[in-house]
Design a protein around this nucleic acid. Structure first.
Lengths: 191, 191
DNA sequence: ATAATTTCTTAATCTACATTAAGTGCCTTT
DNA sequence: AAAGGCACTTAATGTAGATTAAGAAATTAT
């Protein structure tokens, strides 16, 4: 069974015909590491579901500093929600970090599927709810924890990622410079 | 027409009977400033919609420092999403900042309404999507902007709140101490 | 009105993290 | 195998914002 159907079944139950219909509206693609799937300034027209590999979303501010908004590995959805919903351009990039197989669902097809399989409203509501909760927690963590504490939490939650992505990306996700992250890490190891 | 029905109609269209049913599952209450609607450690069983006044959600970390997660004034929803969804206790408070009239929707009734008016799945999906986008932006702002820049953005977006809530709460929302906020503000005025 | 609390301000000192810069090791390309 | 580019480290110096403390102003309670 395709991973994405398995993912849907975590929150809703689809008939075989509905599964068929859903899959017919998606597209599978392979990408090499470093491929840019969405460029800053473009309007986002697609949601991405990761079958294998790792993606990230990030922006670049005036100072030419990158900030990682999120990572996505096997079984995770990723997109530029702001641009996807508003259909306006945003300063977000989506990029492949490790060679990946990705399922593409266009906004157009997603809306079409909402009409034909209203249960999907429920699925994406729950998916978005969970994402919101995670973002709220990360926000509060950024306000109240030190970089070290945030890193420890990250390790517990995303153990798999630590091996896979360059540590400067993790530093950026945590909101510190790669130099400080390196220092902090060696300090933590010494304990 | 009740404000909350007006709010629903921003994303979905309800028949008069559906409106009736929806309202019958809610409850209106008046609260005095400082009332605590949800205490840290409790399981959240209700979503709150503000008819008038101002509420806030916040947590308190080990150091006895408060951090404001969100404000809600007229026309806004507020709840403890983590606890409401998981039905586990969280360390979040919900409190009235300015005398308020609030519409209460219990989780139980909300689930019941999803069954009877599936369109509501759509409404809360969109509501949650918008909230997620706002949280993502705030996260990135916290990573890449100075406190001063964040305050300017806050002023543009929530002009109404600045008059209504004590400035130490705004400092907490922005992620700085009241002392630093005070200093920053007077520095900005001098320009 | 007066007392009591809470909020806001000012100022000195401190610290987590940023910036700059130089150097090391490891891939990748030719 | 050399050369170039990245990712990572180390270290000196700089700064945004925290902490502490004390007084002034504004609310709230009596």
């Amino acid at each position: 069974m395709p991973l994405i159907i398995d993912n849907l079944s975590k929150h809703i139950t689809l008939t075989p015909q509905e599964q068929e219909l859903f899959l017919s509206k998606t597209e599978i693609r392979q990408y090499k590491a470093k491929t840019i799937l969405l460029n800053a300034g473009e309007v986002c027209k697609t949601s991405y579901f990761v079958n294998s590999g790792v993606l990230r979303s990030f922006n670049i501010n005036d100072n030419i500093v990158e900030h990682v908004l999120s990572f996505a590995c096997t079984g995770w959805w990723i997109s530029d929600m702001y641009s996807l919903l508003s259909q306006k351009p945003e300063n977000l990039f989506i990029q492949v970090l490790e060679d990946a197989e990705v399922v593409l669902l266009s906004k157009e097809n997603q809306e079409m599927l909402y009409q034909e399989i209203p249960k999907l409203e429920r699925f994406f509501r729950i998916l978005t709810e969970n994402s919101l909760v995670a973002h709220q927690e990360r926000l509060m963590d950024n306000l109240s924890l030190t970089a070290e504490e945030r890193f420890e939490k990250f390790c517990n939650k995303h153990h798999d990622l630590i091996q896979k992505v360059p540590q400067k990306q993790i530093a950026s996700y945590l909101g510190v410079t790669p130099e400080f992250f390196s220092k902090m890490k060696s300090k933590m190891l010494r304990k």
